[in-house]
Design a protein around this nucleic acid. Structure first.
Lengths: 220, 220, 220, 220
DNA sequence: GATGAATGAGCGTTCATTCAT
DNA sequence: CATGAATGAACGCTCATTCAT
């Protein structure tokens, strides 16, 4: 029964897999070496193909990088948006879910290195900076802002400066990423991400929720 | 009176100034473009000398970078060490002085971009990473740790896990740098550094000082 | 009645048509972009086949180009030879027929771009140059020369330096092609080909025909 | 006395010579192989330098080509303009001087291959096409047109369609170039350029000059 | 026969580094 | 000391050609 679902010749099945294989190799190297210092030939070799093959799937280095971003960060953003849309409960719990989901889907994965990389190198590659701003920053910011607005409007959260709080929420995630990829490797220091995020959540929710709200503790 | 301090002919003073001029040009460009993307020709041009001259003073790109680091971060570290050695007062005040001094001498200056740069690119340049670890990280860590140890030994601070607290103290400084150079430019967001650092100091000292210690408030 | 002429199944007729379709696509692109700059992938795509298929019909790029030349210029040359062989009249009229036929079958068609292309690029592709010399230049020259010799021998034309006159006859045709493909597009200038060719014919025949020959005017 | 005029160190004299050496190598190869097929490494090697050196003098391949054009065709155009400005005589003689000057300064030199090259390849390099149109075609056309206008206004030449005649004058020069670089090498044929140009001049001037003008014959 | 994925040699361009002057 | 011309290795990208299916 399963075999009947895939009647393609082997090389065609390979072709379907290629983009994924190339992206996998690309994330690894981009994270290891940064955008500028990653050689496409190395990406190709790590994916087990020749340099030319890479160009069958991605127009150039920047497009490859965009694909990596779309395949990790943008995808996770979409999933987060979906989980917001489908969520039916208190916004405090939604915020907890988002932050934890971010950690599991991005923060803890190799892809988080991409976030650090963009912070480090976007300045030198204006087209990438624009792409990242449009497809990640703007969209992510909007997602959190509108969630906050809804929560404020419904009275779940106290009236706050939504844009400011959005920044406050994003900050510790970037912090964690910086830590993992820049500080820890230089430093050997430890920082338990879950403890850090939960501390942050408790603190922030204490500020966002109206007084004496039972959602204050994560055990709620 | 002034002339007696510098009897060299002008061109020789110029010669003595060269390294400084080169370093000034180099910081600017390293901070603007990162290590890999900075072209030595641009550094030389900005310093008003030829490319070859640069090599008279610095063996190669990495040595130039090291010199930049020594001239800013390492120098500031030395000054901090001196101010510790010469300090005669309560360790809580010393910590305040160190943090504020860091902000004034490094955090608020262009050189803070170097810190971010190292976090971003050190991975690609192992020799730089090693240099930075030895001359900045290890030394800075040791400085803070020994200060803490002394304070704990003297009873000024409660007994704490010194290594852990060292990390806790370093973190917000890195945070601030990351914010200024990576987040703010992508984000337009604001973060008042002094407020941030003071908040951190109050919070941390509250944890470090024995109960009911008058040094708890910065006005003490 | 029509069906009886072609009893093959449709796909097989398609197969027979492939070479023609490929050649058609190839002329277009060679003329548009030149030999070196034409990508075989584009030729294949324009013919509606895959790149690999092209290689089933033509060994490589040069062979494809040769086929294009054979299918246009060489074929026209053959037809011209036939029309000479089958011609029964005065050589002056034959020359008129040849020149006009050349214009209709080649000069006015896309294939004339191939002539220009050879003039422009043959230098870079020695094998093509040799092929073109053997199959076009030598043969065309011989055709005209022998026609002239016959006409001189028969007394239709005055005794002339046959090789020289051959060049004189070829020149305006190349001129016209150069004009259409190299000068006009840079220049917006016009040049009525028929007027040009007729002027040339009148002029040349005036020189070739014995005095007071009634064939001097094209209306004869 | 002469030595005192050149006190530069040898390598500096070399530097002054480099552009010329590079241009010389470049004309040769561009004419031999065309624009697209000429490898910059070959140009460099022929000039006796490394590939990188070429880029010290010319930003890229197109700029190198433009420099070649400026150094030959555009320069000759300027000289022609000067000789028009400084000319004091009958326009028929001026036209003769221009045509003969063109042959000596361009037509008979290697640079004439550049003209052919542009006709052949400009289509594939839009920026080059634009450059050539602006700096050569437009300027050259304007030069001839205004000369004709002046001659017509002064009554030296009969009233004619100036733009049309301009094309008529340019045509045989392009013809000659095509002949030398495209036809002759394929053909072994000969065409005495001076005879060709003089024939053209006599013919054209016969059409331009008022009846019974003594300037009709070049011996005038 | 037909496909199209894969290859790899080749070229334009950049830039840290050297060295004759 | 200072110069800046010269080098050459490196890398992004292209495309004719091959070959497993």
């Amino acid at each position: 029964m399963e075999g009947s679902l895939d009647t393609k010749p082997r090389w065609e099945r390979r072709k379907d897999a290629r983009p994924e294989e190339l992206l996998a190799a690309a994330v690894d190297l981009f994270v290891e070496r940064g955008f500028a210092s990653t050689r496409l030939e190395d990406v190709a070799r790590r994916a087990g193909v020749s340099k030319g093959t890479l160009y069958l799937y991605y127009e150039n280095k920047e497009e490859l990088f965009k694909a990596v971003v779309r395949n990790s960060i943008v995808r996770a953003l979409g999933e987060a948006e979906d989980s917001i849309a489908g969520f039916d409960g208190h916004s405090a719990d939604l915020l907890r879910i988002l932050i934890h989901g971010w950690w599991q889907r991005l923060g803890a994965t190799k892809a988080s290195g991409i976030i650090k990389l963009v912070m480090a190198e976007a300045g030198n590659f204006p087209e990438l900076a624009q792409f990242y701003r449009e497809e990640v920053i703007d969209r992510g910011t909007k997602m959190i802002s509108s969630m906050l607005e809804r929560a404020v409007a419904s009275g779940e959260f106290r009236p706050v400066d939504v844009n400011m709080v959005t920044q406050v929420i994003i900050a510790p995630m970037l912090m964690l990423v910086t830590w993992r990829h820049s500080v820890a490797p230089c430093n050997g220091s430890e920082l338990d991400p879950m403890v850090f995020l939960d501390t942050f959540l408790d603190l922030t929710l204490r500020g966002l929720l109206p007084a004496d709200n039972p959602h204050r503790t994560s055990s709620a």
